[in-house]
Design a protein around this nucleic acid. Sequence first.
DNA 1: TTGTACGCGTTATCAA
DNA 2: TTGATAACGCGTACAA
Lengths: 347, 347
Amino acid sequence: MTKDGKKTNGIVTLKEVAAALGLSTMTVSRALNDRPNVNPETKKRIQEVATKMGYTPNHVAKSLVSNRTYTIGVVIPEIGHAFFPEVVRGIDEISSEANYQIFLTNSSEDFEKEKRSIEALRAKRVDGILVSTSIKSTDFSFFENLKNTGIKIVFFDRCIYNLGISCIGVNDRVASRQITEHLIKNGYKKIAYLSGPPEVTIGRERLAGFREALTNAGIEINEDRIVETGLTEIDGKEAMNKLLALPKQDRPDAVATVNDPSALGAIEAIKEYGLSIPEDIAIVGFTNEVRASIIDPPLTTINQPAYDVGKRAAYKLLRTIENENEPVENVELIANLVIRKSCGSNS
Amino acid sequence: MTKDGKKTNGIVTLKEVAAALGLSTMTVSRALNDRPNVNPETKKRIQEVATKMGYTPNHVAKSLVSNRTYTIGVVIPEIGHAFFPEVVRGIDEISSEANYQIFLTNSSEDFEKEKRSIEALRAKRVDGILVSTSIKSTDFSFFENLKNTGIKIVFFDRCIYNLGISCIGVNDRVASRQITEHLIKNGYKKIAYLSGPPEVTIGRERLAGFREALTNAGIEINEDRIVETGLTEIDGKEAMNKLLALPKQDRPDAVATVNDPSALGAIEAIKEYGLSIPEDIAIVGFTNEVRASIIDPPLTTINQPAYDVGKRAAYKLLRTIENENEPVENVELIANLVIRKSCGSNS
DNA sequence: TTGTACGCGTTATCAA
DNA sequence: TTGATAACGCGTACAA
């Protein structure tokens, strides 16, 4: 304020508009929000003056009164993974249509940062949170407590079950089984698996699908060919190098992986080792990210509908926010096999 | 509220903590904000009870008083372009360190959506906005008016100049000239250019760099070989097909492009046409996105430091917010040449 | 050291 | 149809 009581801050308030018109704030508020019980002519005058003065409603004040911010938090583990930007695009699509804004936070697979972000989102009083857990999110009680504070949560892609929280994912286990079955159909017997971290659902589910396929086909599972790894190129390359170091008779003739980045890392390792794909070793991924179709050879993989996951997750969260009795749901979108060259198929 | 005046809403307020302790809200507020003049023992008791009750400060209320939200808006044109997620990662890095949250909005290259998003961000009273303009953002007056409302703005990557707004970009023109010079050095003479939309800075600057290189080398510019295109794979493919349709003697022996996606589209067109890269036609990109190194042949391109652009832009915005007299600045980060196979070099 | 009063910008409620 | 008042949750300024 200056000495004479005028604002120095340029932002026009309802009160100022009202003063300029010689009306009460309530009348102005009603007019600007298209409420009934305002004289049409008064309303018109108000709208004109408000526009002329450059009035913008202050949502902070509105939120304080209404206990609603029309804001949702989005917590993702790594925006650098090509899958997530697509998910975010889907979330943005739905939430912007519904006039919600999204707070994006990137945990960098760091559970501590994830927790701090969520605390900050709570302080900002978001109406709900979409979460894909970081690898290290093993502390289930955190999300349980979070849920008990009453905030609406929906998990996507990487979920924690049995917490009464909805989850939007894909049919990881079935898809993983299918792509492994495809390798088996192509005649491979010594199939290895680069397994993701068991702390995240996708790690566990995809590994389970892999095991099912082998078991169903009557192929004995050689545990030495299952290598636990991370979710990045570097992790995949390292893990593949371990497999390549096996005695020649134990070396796999095909490799299934937890995701495309690890498959791409593995491809690099195989090439550097001097072997051919798929002639010496076939390989398949999981994600169908943007590089899968252009790598040499093109990567057979599972197409995860990232954009749809985002849309569905956002939709479910908005329903959960706006509908008192929205049921808890586990949605599995269909992720389908995309056959390219890396698996030794030509069909 | 229920009839007896108790909250049904689970969120605990300062007042409730105070009531539980038989103290005033002020004492509780002071204790929880580590202010002086609180009896250490009282403070301890307060902190314990607050934690037990699950109290979280309400930033909405704080913001209303302080006129600061510790929130910034990020407006990007297309999160599907691999460049932008990396920028966002940089922005998140800086802003989360400073305890700011980011509102992410994706305009999908749609100026109307961009404007709506920015209005919404204003209503939410963000402390500042980071903007990379959509292709269609030709209405300079919009940003001029926006700036006049007093909100802090910083442009990144795609800027509008002469508005007194800081810009964090890369040395587009120089880098574009350098990569073109590299083609010239490799002996190419009939160099074509897939030019981006002239409405965005990157379109204009990179084309200017291309022209400079040819002019400096005394090569006459054949305007038929400059094709205006969009920024996506499809655009690049279309534009390349136009060049391939030229009479054989006019067909380029090398192509420079406005960005990697258009280069990738062009590569597809060239391959489908049955020509070899770089033997028949050399090609270079601009961005160094994630696919550039794995496409066949690997793409010579300009490495744009996306993550650093994000960090610098966020840093500049935070300084502009927190520092009354922060100067307007045009920052050009260095984007350097990455030589791979597609340009016919082996060094 | 602790407490009271007030205001931030808006809307719900009740009165005129 | 319009207006006065209180309230949302918190912190500043001042008083006790």
